[in-house]
């Protein structure tokens, strides 16, 4: 009895030490590839890190931020990014709900269909980008061939040749890739639906549209909000598909914030501008997420 406490103490201590030992590598990695760069980037955004400038390395505090916020180009890039995010999100959610409803039906081969719907999402973005670049190719692209053979267009179009059209074509490519994920979310929550309510609605004479609007949509609302939060974060940071297809062109028509940050850092050697844009992106996403969470919470209260 007398000795009982001591070994336990000893054991606890070594337990603790052991725990530290085990998480040490994770700490090193997290510090090395997340926290340290995050901190350095912040410092960069407060300094003049323009490698070719004579004032290299001097503190400029908030000047980088002010300059950027006063820059008209920066705001049109932000607008473009918002357009990309908004449109692709709307299309993905609309398509996602309908595809999920279809796949939720008891149709023949539904397991097969549910499996293959994942394929676009499983393709790496950079591969997806390369693929769509070829589909849109103005001389030997598949889209041109298809539309011409169907008689919808009489000569080959330049899909990525003008700014506004190019942006929308990129959105289509992104929607193609990301809709499966959205479908998956909706399908999962549709499976949890209480079907007896639908039976009751049907007995009460509600038609298919009424049932969809009054039952399905409210039921899917929480899922929709989750998707909006997750996808906004991703879409706002869009980079790889732009890199693989248009590289911001034509005439900056598809230049998004992250691609702008990349260009500033690695083509212009202005690391501080790149860092500042990165922090502003983070801030914007943070604000959006905060708003979403507010909405989510008030939804929950209702």
């Amino acid at each position: 009895m007398f000795y009982k406490g001591e070994p336990i103490m000893k054991k606890q201590l070594s337990e603790q030490r052991f725990a530290w030992l085990v998480i040490a590598p994770a700490c090193v990695i997290v510090f090395g590839i997340v926290i340290f760069p995050l901190f350095t980037t912040f410092i960069y955004s407060l300094k003049n890190m323009d490698l070719t400038s004579s004032q290299y390395g001097q503190w400029v505090w908030l000047q980088n931020y002010l300059e950027l916020l006063k820059d008209k180009e920066f705001w049109s890039t932000t607008g473009r990014t918002a357009y990309f995010t908004g449109v692709s999100l709307t299309v993905e959610i609309t398509l996602g709900i309908f595809i999920a409803l279809l796949l939720n039906e008891d149709i023949k081969g539904k397991t097969f269909l549910r499996t293959i719907i994942i394929i676009p999402w499983a393709v790496p973005t950079i591969v997806n980008g390369a693929m769509w670049k070829w589909i849109y190719h103005p001389e030997y692209g598949a889209l041109n061939a298809l539309l011409t053979q169907l008689g919808l267009i009489d000569h080959y179009q330049s899909w990525l040749g003008s700014p506004w059209l190019a942006m929308n074509m990129i959105i289509i490519a992104d929607v193609w890739k990301m809709t499966p994920l959205v479908v998956l979310f909706f399908l999962a929550s549709l499976q949890l639906r209480n079907l007896s309510i639908y039976e009751a609605a049907r007995v009460d004479g509600a038609n298919i549209f009424q049932r969809f609007y009054h039952l399905t949509i409210p039921f899917l609302k929480p899922t929709i909000l989750v998707i909006i939060v997750v996808r906004t974060m991703e879409a706002f940071k869009v980079f790889d598909i732009i890199y693989a297809t248009t590289r911001g062109g034509p005439a900056n028509g598809t230049l998004t914030l992250t691609y702008d940050a990349y260009l500033k850092s690695f083509t212009n050697l202005q690391y501080s501008q790149g860092a500042t844009i990165s922090y502003l992106i983070a801030f914007m996403i943070l604000t959006l997420t905060f708003l979403y969470v507010k909405v989510l919470k008030s939804e929950g209260a209702n």
């Binding site: 070719t52 700014p163 062109g249 034509p250 005439a251 260009l263 083509t267 212009n268 202005q270």
Partner: peptide, 22 residues
Amino acid sequence: VPWYGELSTELQVSVQKALLGE
């Protein structure tokens, strides 16, 4: 010039705008 990167980026955009007739 050391600032060629920036010049090139600006040129690419503006020349394209002219080529596209904007």
